[in-house]
Amino acid sequence: MAVAALALLLPAQAATAARDPLAEAEARVTAARRAANEAAQDYEEAQTRYWVLQDDIEQTRAAIGQIESSAAGLRSLAQQRAVEAYTDSGLEIDALVDGDDVLDARRRNELLERVNEDGDNAVARLGALTEDLRVQEANLNNQIAEQEQLVEQLKQREADLRDAVAAAERAEAELRERLERERKAREYQERLRRARAAAAASSSGRGSAGGAGQIIATGNWVCPVQGGASFGDSWGAPRSGGRRHQGVDMMASTGTPLVAVVSGSIQLRTGGLGGNAIWLSGSDGNTYYYAHLDDFAGGARSVSAGEKIGTVGNTGNARGGASHLHFEIHPGGGRAINPYPTVRANC
């Protein structure tokens, strides 16, 4: 499915591809990332709409409860006023309940009907309003069910496009490796030709970088997700419990490596909304929060920028949803700011 999605991401460029296959591969990666990011944004917006509907239905149910309570109060008040009015008329209370006299019964009924008429009308109006609200509640339930289906569809679409990004990146990496092997082979043949022509052995050794251990990326500020990731700007979007989204959700496959964005020290946390989480106190004076990790890579310690600290998952309140990293930036260790522009510039 990822290959099929990739085929639709780029217009036909046969002439360009024939001249520069690497440029075509890079363009496919760029198009795949753009489509995946758009899918991630659609997924975030669908989730936001789902929580808005949940709030609406809770408010509707609360309104129904208040109206039903008001109607019950009106009925009780109407009965009480009937008794008081009857008492003020000079009749005995026993006659109101047990009177056998026909005139007394007729008088009692007229008085009760007159006193209760306004209350009954008010109760009827409240009943009609309650019915309208129940229709609204049923409509909201239908919308929530439809929104749940849409969220699942967008979740699958985002996963398919993320697979397409990974496939495009693998194809680009394989092409780069092949082109690099071919380049090195041409260079070797050229050096050999010159050496034979000059009848002198001349070679320049080239060292290769050793294993980097857990350092899997370099730079002053490193993208926290080291693999195919897609994300949109969902800062401030509604979340369960009346919360607002305080980070960026970076969609990636379970197990995708997570690294320290800057050097500093990390503390590990488990449980709560974030599930497996990490607080990184950066050497740049800022604090960074990673949530919903599948697993940690090592324990609390000092880390270098680009050092692996965990893997992408869906723990905490993300359980059952799409695997992703919830990432926050707290300048100076204070309140969170929208991390999307920073992530966009570095990932």
Rank of each mutant, 00 (worst) to 15 (best):
V97R: 06
A25W: 03
E117Y: 03
L103P: 00
T130G: 15
A35L: 09
I93V: 07
R81E: 13
R107M: 06
R108W: 00
R33D: 12
E58M: 09
L112K: 04
E84Y: 04
R107I: 02
D56Q: 06
R33M: 08
Q66G: 09
R75S: 11
E131Y: 05
R106P: 02
L77D: 15
L22I: 06
Q80V: 10
A25Q: 15
A12P: 08
I64V: 15
A25P: 08
Q66K: 08
Q80N: 10
T16H: 14
E38C: 06
R106M: 09
A23S: 13
V52C: 09
V29C: 02
R134F: 07
L111G: 01
A12R: 14
G119N: 00
A95E: 05
T87Y: 02
L22G: 15
V123K: 00
V52F: 07
L133V: 07
S89R: 00
T87I: 03
E24G: 07
V102C: 02
A12Q: 13
A122C: 01
A95S: 09
E44D: 15
A71C: 12
D100M: 02
P21R: 13
E117R: 06
A36L: 02
G90D: 03
L53E: 09
V135M: 11
I64D: 12
V97T: 03
A35H: 05
T16F: 15
V115D: 00
L126V: 02
R108A: 06
R61Y: 05
Q54G: 11
A39R: 01
A46L: 09
N37H: 13
E26R: 14
L126W: 01
V97F: 11
I93H: 00
A40T: 02
G90S: 02
A18Y: 07
Y43W: 12
V102T: 08
A71W: 03
R108K: 10
E38R: 08
E24D: 12
A12Y: 12
D94C: 00
N109E: 15
S76W: 08
E117C: 02
L112R: 13
D120A: 10
A18G: 07
N37Y: 04
Q47D: 06
A14R: 14
R75V: 07
R28P: 12
V83M: 12
Q79D: 15
E24K: 12
S76H: 14
R49C: 05
T87R: 10
D20P: 13
D100N: 03
E38V: 07
T87N: 05
R106Q: 09
A17N: 11
E131K: 14
Y86S: 01
A17R: 15
A18K: 10
N109V: 14
S89K: 00
I64S: 11
A124F: 01
R81G: 02
D56Y: 06
A35G: 08
G119E: 00
A105V: 12
A95D: 10
